[in-house]
Every structure is written in structure tokens, then in C-alpha cells.
Design a protein around this nucleic acid. Structure first.
Length: 180
DNA sequence: CACCAGGCCCTAT
DNA sequence: ATAGGGCATGGT
């Protein structure tokens, strides 16, 4: 999940899977293994996911941080949400969406993930709210996030499923367009 | 061949 | 403070 969050930045999932397959075949698809490899060795493996020079550095940096600061994911899960979020955001290559994806899907923290699909979903089906939320502003991410969090029960499973459904809907709508 | 895919960093105003 | 360019591959 964590590796996927970085590899998937501005990249389709098929290519992310190719990169992860390479990591698995090289038996380095874990944070502890990546720490020992270093960015130079990681780069060729994640090449299919694109932007691989950057992403290999990001992966290495994140792996180093988690292993040195927490040692293992289970320990990390015990830290409070806000603390984890600000720590993740300080790392190179981790912005709000990537941080929140890790928090929600890997660490089971109740944070709503805002991505391009979520924005399109709001724009298409909730035009009225969408306008009020001014998505063009710099801090629109946090505003959109609060919109969901303030109107839904604070429940990790619900956030995970809700976001997943938005993605599934968006993709099926896209396919519909292509075929038409 | 042109375009796209679940961002984020860096730099020049 | 903030818009704009750069990063790169594989599929359609």
C-alpha cells in the first residue's frame, strides 16, 4: 500500500503493478529491504511507473524515515493521526494526497483522501457544493477534505470504501465515454 | 503519432 | 505567494 501510494503519483495502476512486480521478483518489496538498497538500486526496478529517478528517491526517503523512526508499521499505527500526517508531509515526494492515502489505507487512520477523481465526482454530481468550496484555491485540499469528514461518521472503513467507490465510479464513467 | 494516467518539487516572477 | 515547467513510462 505504502509503496503504491508513491508509485501511483500521476501514473496509471497498470504501470504501478509492473514496478511492484519488479520489486517482488527482486525480493525487495518491503520498507526494510529498500533501506538497504539505496535509491540507485531502486530506480531501475520502479522504472515502469515513470518519473523513476524521483520516485526511487522518495521511496528510499520514506523507507528510511519509517524504519528509523518507528521500526515497523504496527508501531507506527499507534502514533496519533495529526502527528503522523505532519511527519509524512515533511518528506520529499509526499504531498497531501499521498500522505492521506498512506494514513487511510496502510495505517487505518480516519482521513478522507482527496484526489482528482474525488474532485470530478463533486463537480459532476454536487455542483452547488463544489462552487462554494472554491477548488482553485491553494488550500482547497483541506477544505474538500473537511467537507467529507464533517458530513460523514468518523469511520475508517467507511472512508476507505467511500473513496474506493468514487474511483470505481469515475473509471466506469470514463470507459463509458470511450466506447460511445 | 498524440494523448493520458489516483502528484509533487522547484523556480522565476 | 503563486502559476508554470519538469519529471517518464507503457497503454490506447
Amino acid at each position: 500500500m505504502i509503496l503504491g501510494a508513491i508509485l501511483a503519483q500521476r501514473t496509471n495502476w497498470r504501470n504501478v503493478e509492473l514496478a511492484i512486480k519488479n520489486l517482488k521478483e527482486a525480493k525487495v518489496a518491503s520498507l526494510s529491504a529498500l533501506c538497504h538498497l539505496g535509491p540507485k538500486k531502486i530506480a531501475p526496478l520502479v522504472r515502469p511507473a515513470g518519473f523513476y529517478q524521483s520516485k526511487s528517491r522518495y521511496l528510499y526517503g520514506l523507507a528510511r524515515f519509517i524504519m528509523s523512526r518507528y521500526g515497523q508499521i504496527e508501531k507506527m499505527k499507534k502514533a496519533p493521526l495529526e502527528k503522523l500526517r505532519s511527519e509524512l508531509l515533511k518528506l520529499k515526494g509526499i504531498g497531501p494526497e499521498t500522505a492521506d492515502s498512506i494514513l487511510l489505507y496502510a495505517l487505518d487512520k480516519p482521513v478522507f483522501v482527496i484526489d482528482e477523481y474525488t474532485r470530478r465526482f463533486l463537480k459532476k454530481h454536487y455542483q452547488r457544493f463544489f462552487k462554494k468550496l472554491k477548488i482553485s484555491d491553494k488550500d482547497s485540499y483541506e477544505r474538500l477534505q473537511k467537507f467529507f469528514e464533517n458530513n460523514l461518521p468518523r469511520d475508517v472503513r467507511l472512508y476507505q470504501r467511500f473513496h474506493a467507490l468514487i474511483v470505481i465510479m469515475a473509471k466506469s464513467e470514463l470507459r463509458g465515454k470511450e466506447k460511445r
